[in-house]
Design a protein around this nucleic acid. Structure first.
Length: 729
DNA sequence: TACCCTCGAGTTCA
DNA sequence: CTCGAGGGTA
């Protein structure tokens, strides 16, 4: 569909920004509207300021908003209690924390809930390490404190910095506040501490101290903390360390980051060393050598949970032997050698008022449960995802029944759980409470946004029906167009500051932005005489100026971001990077994709030859570039932006980019470890020797592969040679 | 074919 | 964070 893009209200006379009416001339209704709008806007700015660390308005503008907001409340006191955002609009942020990059990332742990999962965890470790059934593997087991992780850096025994976990690689510098925590030593004790030592652990508040703090909050008329963890987080993130000092935070040490010299070769030994250095170790830390012992300790902790005096949410198991830990390594972002055995998550019961359908960027019809608001684990929940049609009907991913096949109906009383203590989910239905007139939910067969037919496609390979029903409206579906635009400006794509979801909604609705390329003509069109952005409600001159600047800044964009922004199905962040790295320029990608449409060409094979790109992804790419309207969009867009080719990423590893084959018996590591290690260093591991192979690592008993290696004149080395080449680890 | 892992796309609340 | 599915390998 070809859309003309008129500027909004083009027949309105040009008008100057009108100064807001004095508050005493407002009707209560108008005041209420403005109050609500202001609360939303201020909350948004606060969020950008605090969470994204990117103020969206100047301080002066922010102050003006707040002044107006307070003036309204002064004139119309009834507003204070009516709008729930009122109390959330906190004090004006003055300063912020600087960032600290962790030298070693702070990882998360794999979770388990059932005993069987603990067995599997131990089994997996034995298999990976090829440890015989009768040989014991020792684990440590300790309570998982429900607080905030903190990384403390000591140099020559002195605390030099403290950082929160953040996203795992970059945290916030809370050193001044950490110094006020009694359990955190300023100076390490003893003599044998390493020169550089990063100790990691958990900051928490006891139940008693939490209650006392909340009493004080109440007395001061301030908002109460929902739970000890929030209170601890709030206390640690105080800008004034004196306030942190007045909150009795505690700290348990349980791990480490960078360390110049290892004081021990086991997890438990390390923890003991930390104790010698002056840290507090959780007294319920034990060594266990069987699954039964682990589970027994879990039950002990669970039984004592209420008497501990602080919140815990499970038990952490770690392989004790550090040698084994390093052999086990990591899976994506969590170590293979540790597991968090969580206590059953908190649940609550409420009523399902309605089921709404949202339309995603790919046309997926996503059912959302609107719930009678209820508190689960200290947070009020009013929405929850229902995943898909089958989930509502009581059918799981592989066709088996879930919830004993009970479907979910509007009016049902449902059990809500915050999965992983964060995202709420409809766990079950209380059948006894189902109203007599409740009817099975009829999943729409048409898109609620555009009315097009919505279908569940068949997977061409397996013949199975897709679990997701999708709108077939494509270009004509406004919801899809809107979501594609949101994707286009999202964080890993164009990341245009000042153009978030809300603004996209607004600008899409009035026709200002309908296609990605419209973003880059926005300023030119705005310069015309029509109603300008800066005169609109909710937009100030500065925010518009900043927005234009942000858009200008993105006229140059990295290839991988650009590819990702296009929103090709199955092409996310990672695949976009793979494509960028393989082809180098956007033209090369485009050419290959177009060529692949011709079955004679081997371009399709080139796509699938990229590790991580298979036939499904390749097909999606080819389809995307085949579409006429996508071509038009790209032409228009490329006239506006410059896509930067990627520079060849040169890793400093000696085997980066090489293809390695391991053959024969390996003595110092298992095959799986060897593979994981090589890949970590940027090498590709193949199963057989070909002329593409660069290195063959041959152990004793290597046969045909070794001969082949000689035939192809491939570099051959033994395990020791490998370690000489790449170093240990 | 059966797995194991990674990825994409969806999600909540503050 | 979770689900389902794609990709790759035993």
């Amino acid at each position: 569909m070809v859309l003309t893009v008129p500027f909004a209200d083009s027949n309105m006379p040009e008008n100057k920004p009108t100064p807001p009416k004095p508050v005493d001339q407002l009707t209560p209704a108008a005041a209420r509207l403005e109050h609500e709008a202001l609360a939303r806007e201020i909350a948004q700015h606060d969020r950008r300021y605090y969470e994204d660390d990117a103020p969206s308005v100047s301080d002066a503008e922010y102050d003006a908003l707040r002044l107006r907001y307070e003036a309204l409340e002064a004139q119309f006191p009834e507003l204070k209690s009516t709008e729930s955002l009122t109390r959330k609009v906190g004090s004006k942020p003055s300063e912020k924390f600087s960032k600290i990059r962790h030298r070693a990332p702070m990882l998360s742990l794999a979770n388990a809930f059932a005993d069987e999962e603990v067995e599997e965890f131990v089994e997996r470790i034995r298999r990976f390490l090829q440890i015989k059934a009768d040989a014991p593997v020792i684990f440590t087991a300790e309570p998982k404190i429900d607080g905030l992780s903190l990384s403390l850096r000591y140099e020559h025994g002195r605390l030099v910095s403290a950082a929160t976990r953040g996203d795992g690689s970059v945290g916030e510098d809370v050193t001044a506040n950490a110094r006020t925590v009694g359990d955190i030593p300023q100076k390490l004790t003893g003599k044998d501490f390493p020169e550089i030592l990063e100790v990691r652990g958990e900051v928490y508040l006891s139940h008693a101290d939490f209650a006392a703090i909340n009493e004080r909050q109440a007395a001061a008329g301030k908002q109460l903390f929902a739970n000890p963890r929030n209170a601890a987080a709030g206390s640690l993130r105080q800008l004034d360390p004196a306030i942190t000092a007045s909150r009795p935070l505690h700290f348990f040490a349980y791990g480490w980051g960078e360390i110049s010299e290892m004081p021990a070769d086991t997890q438990s030994g390390m923890i003991d060393a930390f104790r010698r250095f002056g840290f507090i170790i959780n007294p319920l830390t034990r060594r266990c050598s069987t699954v039964a012992e682990l589970l027994e300790h879990y039950r002990t902790i669970e039984t004592n949970r209420a008497n501990l005096g602080y919140d815990i949410d499970g038990v952490v198991y770690k392989v004790d032997d550090l040698n084994l830990q390093s052999r086990l390594g990591f899976v994506s972002r969590s170590p293979r050698w540790a597991l968090a055995h969580k206590f059953p998550a908190q649940q609550a019961t409420t009523i399902l008022d309605a089921i709404e359908i949202n339309v995603g960027r790919t046309g997926s019809l996503n059912p959302l449960a609107r719930l009678r608001p209820i508190t689960v684990g200290g947070v009020v929940v009013s929405n929850a995802t229902l995943h898909n049609e089958d989930y509502i009907r009581g059918i799981g991913g592989n066709g088996e029944k879930i919830r004993n096949g009970v479907d979910i109906r509007v009016g049902d009383t449902v059990i809500i759980q915050r999965a992983g203590d964060v995202i709420p989910k409809v766990l079950d239905v209380v059948l006894e409470k189902r109203p007599a007139d409740a009817k099975p939910y009829l999943f729409p067969s048409n898109c609620p946004a555009c009315g097009s037919h919505a279908v569940r496609e068949q997977n061409p390979r397996t013949g199975k029906e897709d679990s997701v029903r999708r709108c077939t409206g494509g270009l004509i579906c406004p919801a899809q167009a809107r979501e594609r635009l949101k994707h286009f400006v999202s964080r890993n794509a164009f990341d245009i500051e000042g153009l978030g979801e809300q603004r996209i909604e607004e600008l899409y609705a009035d026709g200002t932005i309908r296609r990605p390329q419209d973003i880059f003509t926005l300023e030119a069109r705005n310069a015309g005489k029509l109603q300008r952005l800066e005169n609109r409600e909710g937009w100030g001159a500065t925010s518009v100026k900043n927005l234009f600047a942000a858009i200008e800044a993105r006229r140059n964009i990295a290839l991988n971001r650009f590819v990702y922004a296009l929103g090709i199905p199955h092409v996310g962040d990672t695949s976009a990077k793979l494509l960028a790295r393989h082809f180098g320029t956007f033209e090369a990608i485009q050419e290959a994709a177009k060529a692949a449409a011709d079955p004679e060409s081997d371009a399709h094979a080139e796509l699938t030859s990229i590790g991580g790109i298979g036939s499904v992804v390749a097909d999606a790419i080819v389809e995307f570039f085949k579409e006429q309207h996508n071509e038009e969009m790209l032409d228009a867009l490329l006239a506006q932006v410059h896509v930067e080719p990627v520079e060849a990423t040169v890793s400093d590893s000696p085997v980066a980019g090489k293809t390695v084959v391991f053959t024969g018996a390996l003595e110092q590591m298992t095959r799986e470890e060897a593979k994981a290690m090589a890949e970590r260093l940027g090498a590709k591991v193949a199963g057989s020797v070909s002329k593409k192979t660069d290195i063959v690592v041959a152990g004793p008993g290597a046969g045909s592969k070794l001969n082949k290696a000689k035939e192809f004149d491939v570099q051959v080395m033994d395990e020791d040679g490998w370690f000489v080449l790449v170093g240990r680890n």
